[in-house]
């Protein structure tokens, strides 16, 4: 969107992933340009979530590569070979990728502020005195400045997910991954979370969002990707994929969800 954006290029190349005998991803290729918003839609079990989890290496690929800004995720190039990275280095790579879970996964024993402060301090080694005002500003940005001292169980689902988004932003990631961020929410709470994500989308961060909110895709996506059976069936601008789908399977899926 913004022309100056240079960081946050995501490349997924020929990715295969199986769980036991079930192949969940069978050769996925995807390029997300810096600052673009890509919305991934598709039936359950189609491999959407696995694709996101592969991008930040929560799942190891069986074949293929993932790179962010030209750096391979989980591997280092050594001449003619690829060396698997140590967990420590993978953890460092992950601080450049924010991940928002369907079930929030906030740390229940920590306050909202402590949840946000944790990673910049312990993973990036930044001084707490510098991180805390920034974390408060992030909580303010998601509309929860007054809840800094509350623990997750004292918050509503929508508030928890907004804290989780602030937490994901705290390491200043180049790429944000959202795994069905509103699926666990009561319908009346979906709006407040989508508003925060929309605000982020306009700020020019690269985002990949797995969602069933077709309206959100139509409004904000630069690219909509339809995935089924572990393969990308079609991708393109929302007007094309959502309104004039080229494939029967896309049509059938959209008929069901719209």
């Amino acid at each position: 969107m913004s022309a100056v954006q240079t960081e946050g290029l995501v490349e997924v190349h020929g990715v295969h992933k199986s769980f036991g005998t079930l192949e969940v991803l069978s050769g996925v290729d995807l390029v997300v340009k810096p600052g673009e918003v890509t919305v991934v839609i598709g039936p359950s079990g189609s491999g959407k979530s696995t694709l996101l989890r592969v991008i930040n290496h929560l799942e190891k690929v069986d074949r293929g590569f993932v790179a962010i800004d030209g750096d391979l995720i989980g591997y280092a190039r050594k001449g003619d070979s690829l060396r698997e990275l140590k967990e420590k280095d993978i953890l460092r790579q992950r601080t450049r990728i924010g991940f928002v879970f369907q079930s929030f996964n906030l740390f229940p024993h920590l306050t909202a502020l402590e949840n946000v402060v944790e990673a910049p301090v312990s993973a990036q080694g930044r001084p707490r005195s510098e991180v805390e005002p920034e974390a408060l500003a992030l909580l303010d940005r998601v509309g929860l400045a007054d809840k800094a001292g509350a623990r997750p169980r004292q918050l509503s689902g929508g508030q928890q997910q907004r804290v989780a988004i602030a937490r994901a932003l705290a390491t200043r990631p180049k790429v944000l991954l959202f795994d069905e961020p509103t699926s666990a929410l009561d319908p009346e709470l979906v709006g407040e979370v989508l508003d925060v994500i929309k605000d982020l989308a306009r700020s020019g961060t690269t985002m990949i969002v797995v969602t069933h909110e077709i309206g959100f895709a139509r409004e904000l996506a630069d690219t909509v990707v339809f995935i089924d059976g572990g393969r990308i069936v079609e991708q393109g601008p929302p007007a094309q994929v959502l309104d004039h789908p080229a494939h029967e399977r896309t049509k059938a899926f959209l008929d069901k969800v719209l």
């Binding site: 929560l58 953890l91 460092r92 991940f99 879970f101 990673a119």
Partner: peptide, 25 residues
């Protein structure tokens, strides 16, 4: 399991994941 995953996704070092996130819970 989501607690382990969230800690890993944030890049929190492994020893710290245990002492700060997992053991207190």
């Amino acid at each position: 399991q989501g607690q382990h995953e969230a800690a890993a996704a944030l890049g929190i070092p492994r020893a710290r994941q245990q002492t700060r996130i997992v053991l207190p819970q």
